[in-house]
Structures are given as C-alpha cells and as structure tokens.
Amino acid sequence: MKGLVFAILGGGFITLQGVANSRISQDVGTWQTATITQLTGFLMAFLILVVAGGRGSWQELKKVQPLYLIGGTFGAIVVFSNVTAIHFIGVTLTVSAMLIAQLGMTVMIDRNGWFNLKKQKIKLPQLLGITMMVAGVMILGM
C-alpha cells in the first residue's frame, strides 16, 4: 500500500513537473526555466545529501565509469523538449509519446547489449506492448 502511494506520487510529480515547467516558460525563456528548476532541485538534493551524512558517497563517484557520470547533462535537452512538446501537443500526447520513445529505446539498448548490459532478445509481448501504445497515441491524436 505504502509502495503504491509512493509510485503514484512519483509519477504524478513527473507529469506535474512538465506542466509547471511549461507554465513557467510562458513568462521566462525555456532554457531559463530548465536552468532555474534544475538549480533549485540540485541545491535541495545536495542539502539532503549533506544532512543525511552521505557526503562520503561523493567520493564513490570516482569509481563510476566517466561516461555514465554525464547523464545529467541530458536533463537540459529533456526539459527543453518536454516543455516545447507540451506547448505544441498538450500534456497527454507528450507523455504518451515520451513513454513510447523511452520503452522503445530501452528495447533497442537491451537488444544490442549497449553500455555493458546483457544482450536480450526482443520478446513478442514487448513488441505487442509498444504497438499497442503507438495505436493508443494515434487514437489520442486523431
């Protein structure tokens, strides 16, 4: 039950973030929106890290392969694209298309075993799932 509430809140916050950012970007620039929201998020996360006494874990970052450390920079493009998409096609279509691209990309990465992940064959139900999602989006967009 507790887990369910956390999952629903987590998903709700993801969508709310996109909506809030697209509202903010009506008043200030989209890049500025991405800059401000990630700055305040960073400050808060860092504060929690320090208060929770996890500063030592900062050292652990050295053990991570450098390529994986730069994932955060994608956030700039993600926020920008998310906001721009919401302006053009609304929240529902944006979230739907993002989910399809997200799961589709995951399948492609798994299939090719990129980033040292175990190579996995695409299974029929997965293809079927993505096909259903695409069909659903087409119905939404009609």
Binding site: G71, I77, F88, T94, Q102, G104, M105
Partner: peptide, 26 residues
C-alpha cells in the same frame, strides 16, 4: 511536438541507464 517528445523520451531512457550505474555506487 511529437518529435520533441520522442527526443525527450529517448534521452530519459539513456539517462535512466547511466544514472542507475551511478546510483549503484554512490
């Protein structure tokens, strides 16, 4: 609009993989 959403979604998927590798250690 769809193109922007697809770019965002693809990057989120990449980011999830990268971040989970960082998460394991840190």
């Amino acid at each position: 609009g769809l193109l922007f959403a697809i770019v965002a979604g693809a990057l989120v998927s990449l980011q999830n993989i990268f971040n989970s590798k960082v998460n394991e250690k840190a």
